[in-house]
Simulated scan of single mutants.
Amino acid sequence: MTLMRVLVADDQDLFRGGFAMILGAQDDISVVGEAADGAEAIAKAVELEPDLVLMDIRMPHVDGVTATAEICRRTSAKVLVLTMYDIDDYVYEALRAGASGFLLKDVRRDDLVRAVRLVAAGESLLAPSVTRRLIEDVVRRGTPRPTLRARLGTLTEREIDTLRQIARGLSNAEIAAELVVSEHTVKTHVSNLLTKLGLRDRAQAVMFAYESGLAVAGS
């Protein structure tokens, strides 16, 4: 069995130790390190090369947003951010910086493990409230970016259809039903469009769809 390597970053000992203990107890997860602030998280992510970093969004010295951006730039690790409130503006900045999703810090044990497995496998974890805020932010900033629109030309018609459904927040199974194709075919389309557009995961795909003008708020 290949173990999923996880780094836990949180400035509060109680949370950091608790998350590490829960994840480390799983047969398929290995907690390879812990970090007490963003600077340490960056250094350990580069050194230890984890598959996923569980990142507290608010930490002293170097915060989780800055650390997320640097880790996504310098490593292939996925980042799952932790926050006390789902309306935390830092969450949206972290998603723009490359995070694959977020969890509330009072998450249940089973939901934490499930979320880590999902994100490590390439899924995103976005609550509807977060998706709405991201869309509102794009709309507030105005005109779609032409450079992004041009990149849509690299996609096939089916890949564009798939991207539209991702922007709606649909799962692979739901997209398969919507487009009347197999779930395996959807997975292939998702993988191809992420590669062609240079995106890390579905969270970035949602933002790309709206920022390119492919998806329109309220549609």
Rank of each mutant, 00 (worst) to 15 (best):
42 I>W: 06
69 A>K: 12
94 A>R: 02
92 Y>N: 03
122 G>Y: 07
144 P>L: 02
219 S>Q: 14
92 Y>P: 00
153 G>S: 13
175 I>G: 06
64 G>F: 01
57 I>Q: 04
129 S>L: 12
184 H>P: 08
41 A>H: 00
126 L>K: 02
204 Q>D: 11
28 D>M: 09
214 L>A: 06
76 S>I: 00
90 Y>Q: 15
39 A>S: 14
106 D>S: 10
14 L>H: 09
88 D>M: 01
134 L>V: 11
143 T>G: 06
101 G>N: 04
100 S>M: 04
27 D>V: 03
174 E>S: 12
44 K>P: 07
170 L>H: 13
160 I>S: 11
83 T>Q: 11
120 A>M: 04
133 R>S: 07
168 R>Y: 11
89 D>C: 02
209 A>T: 12
55 M>A: 10
29 I>A: 05
201 D>V: 03
50 P>E: 04
152 L>Y: 03
38 G>K: 00
161 D>S: 12
193 L>P: 02
99 A>S: 10
189 H>M: 09
111 D>S: 12
70 E>M: 11
113 V>Q: 00
105 K>R: 13
4 M>P: 00
88 D>G: 08
204 Q>F: 06
79 V>D: 01
168 R>D: 14
134 L>M: 15
174 E>T: 02
35 A>C: 04
216 V>N: 07
134 L>R: 08
108 R>Y: 13
48 L>Q: 09
117 R>F: 01
30 S>Q: 12
31 V>L: 03
163 L>A: 05
92 Y>L: 14
100 S>Y: 01
126 L>F: 00
139 V>G: 04
179 L>V: 04
32 V>A: 06
125 L>I: 08
1 M>K: 13
87 I>G: 14
184 H>V: 15
131 T>R: 15
136 E>C: 07
2 T>A: 15
90 Y>P: 07
58 R>F: 05
94 A>H: 03
42 I>V: 15
180 V>Y: 10
61 H>R: 14
80 L>K: 09
62 V>Y: 06
208 F>I: 07
119 V>S: 04
178 E>T: 11
182 S>L: 07
29 I>P: 00
39 A>W: 05
68 T>K: 07
162 T>Y: 10
56 D>G: 00
29 I>L: 07
159 E>F: 01
12 Q>R: 13
207 M>F: 02
41 A>F: 02
190 V>W: 01
210 Y>G: 05
159 E>N: 06
60 P>Y: 04
179 L>C: 05
2 T>P: 12
202 R>N: 11
70 E>F: 01
95 L>T: 00
94 A>Q: 07
217 A>R: 12
136 E>M: 10
196 K>P: 03
106 D>Y: 04
149 R>D: 07
100 S>C: 08
110 D>A: 06
115 A>L: 06
111 D>E: 15
135 I>T: 09
27 D>P: 06
184 H>L: 10
159 E>A: 10
157 E>P: 01
132 R>V: 05
49 E>Y: 02
178 E>S: 14
211 E>H: 00
41 A>K: 02
199 L>W: 06
136 E>D: 15
89 D>P: 14
152 L>A: 04
205 A>R: 03
